[in-house]
Design a protein around this nucleic acid. Structure first.
Lengths: 331, 331
DNA sequence: GCTTTTTGTGGAATCGATTCCACAATGAGT
DNA sequence: ACTCATTGTGGAATCGATTCCACAAAAAGC
């Protein structure tokens, strides 16, 4: 391994001068600069990041904590993050919690020890304990997908997207709309439910308890939820919904799968819409109506925001991204 | 920041002793050990990774180079890697090339500078230049998905999987089978084509040139490829294939989408099979026959192999994973 | 021509750990 | 009682960079 000392000797200058050349700081004569650059070129020398980090307390590494990488949302966000970060020489240290909330805490500590310059948290909740921990480790951090008091964040306009989607279904003549949500600790997704309920209320439409079910984040749970909704509603006639909103495309896909198995037609017997604009949504039969959230953009914005914060430039506190309704023939 | 020196002073011992306690090395009296442990506990001290790495040349970080994280294959492999690595305290530094081959080289250099202990390369090719570069940086490296001379690797048994799948279609009475492949620099996927051709030959079945098309890795290109195959084959009657094998589920999905648009029925007019066992494959209409490659397992195996190599234990050179045919109603 | 300021350079300290080595205090063996 | 191995400890060097400081030479100001 060639070190700065070797370069210094070969270029017949001191280590200090080499360092100055490398970092473009202080005074260096043209002559010395050229000699150093030449030697650096020849030897293919690159300074050790460890030594550098030890001195400067900077690593050029950002940690990314996420619940799972096996969703389009996560992987798109990470792609967006990567694109922006790599422009400025930052690398990503991946911290996958596999949906284990405990691990979020562990990773926050670990990333601190690793000395990352910043952290991106693709969050699934905003529990006070978590927020406390974040304050405690005191590293620039931006949350994606959830917002919280005093935190930088990039979020989606779930509420209005949901209202608009609901409104669209109502315009199409639907009055009985079912809804498949998820666990309520996810505030962002909670907003989708709120938007749905308020838009229904705004049209003086009642929402039966039997139309509301919950899933987790996989396709099967959408299937199960749809089954429950139908069997619950069948008991009281005239209460069978004619449309369904699922908070993710996967849930919608599961629901659609169940309906088909039961011989029901989409959208004639049941209109379906989801959220997230999965790649496969347009290839379903029929193509799924959904809401596009531009996840890659979210990643890019988060990266930019974090970089600004790390360089202590002015930075926006909270960014709310726009959405785009994609109407397809499933409704 | 609390350092080893602080701990030493507070526990009234030398830095050396603290280090010995922390690393369980050398002789330490029970008395001293307890004092140190107590202070460590109280202060919540964790040693600086930078300083440690500078001295020991170990980072407990492995780099993962991948072409894109937005495929199920990649993200599952990464999940598997993460699971095994985190057991031993290794973290993952993500290097996403976004399908840019140039970047593979850049990242190999960069990971060397970062001083990673090992590298996992989710490869798309095995060009000599790349292999040279890998040798040059001289860091333990395991390839996933492609094998090459002198490299550790974890691959799938593409050849036999493809033969078996082809055989299955032939058993069902198909004699004219079309095939959608990809760019031939991908050796692994190339094996799928080879398996297909050899199995056809083994049954004395001819394969018309018009049945062979190529796509890239997205759904649309499957759609386009199917379109070409049909329009090419129509010119010569009795040459229209009755079945299709696509080298990925996405391509199969695109092909299916085109067929439906043309009013053709699956599997009556055209049987379809893919590779990869995408999560969505079973929710297609009809559910897609495919080959499951256990990508998470591949990630785990790669991690174990790399860890063994880094600890210079004995390690297998090449691991070939088993596959599983999943027969569904698309054939 | 003599003081200031600007350039340019190298020496030495520093970051926070690990590790070699010297040395002291035990205990064991004969 | 005298060697010799075992245990336990701290001092100092080291890893490879950055950065402060002192100092010299050149340029500028009066």
């Amino acid at each position: 391994m060639v070190t700065i000392k070797d370069i210094a000797e070969m270029a017949k200058v001191s280590k200090s001068t080499v360092s100055r050349v490398l970092n473009n700081s202080g005074y260096v004569s043209e002559d010395a600069r050229m000699r150093v650059e030449k030697v650096v070129e020849q030897t293919n020398y690159t300074p050790s990041q460890h030594a550098k980090s030890l001195r400067t307390k900077k690593t050029k590494i950002v940690g990314v904590i996420l619940p799972t990488i096996q969703t389009e949302t996560s992987s798109k966000i990470v792609t967006g993050l990567g694109r922006e970060f790599s422009k400025l020489g930052y690398e990503i240290l991946l911290a996958n919690t596999n949906l284990n909330k405990e691990k979020e805490f562990e990773y926050l500590d670990l990333l601190k020890v690793r000395g990352v310059d910043g952290i991106v948290l693709i969050a699934t909740n905003t529990e006070p304990k978590l927020l406390e921990k974040i304050k405690e480790i005191n590293i620039p951090l931006v949350m994606v997908g959830q917002a919280a008091e005093g935190m930088m964040s990039v979020t989606y306009d779930d509420y209005h997207a949901s209202r608009e989607l609901t409104s669209l279904l109502i315009d199409k003549g639907h009055e009985r709309i079912a809804f498949i949500g998820v666990d309520e600790t996810d505030q962002a997704v909670g907003m989708r439910k709120k938007g749905f309920l308020q838009e229904m209320a705004a049209h003086q439409l009642e929402v039966s308890e039997t139309w509301l079910e919950k899933g987790i984040f996989d396709i099967d749970s959408g299937y199960d939820a749809m089954e429950k909704i139908l069997s619950n509603s069948r008991r009281s006639p005239n209460k069978i919904p004619t449309a369904l909103i699922a908070v993710t495309d996967r849930l919608a896909m599961g629901a659609m799968s169940y309906l088909k198995k039961q011989g029901m037609r989409v959208p004639e017997d049941m209109a379906i819409a989801g959220f997230g604009a999965s790649e496969f949504a347009q290839y379903l039969d029929p193509p799924l109506t959904t809401v596009d959230y531009q996840n890659e953009k979210a990643g890019e914005e988060a990266a930019i925001q974090l970089i600004n914060c790390m360089h202590s430039k002015n930075h926006t506190e909270k960014i709310v991204l726009d959405y785009r309704l994609i109407e397809r023939t499933s409704i």
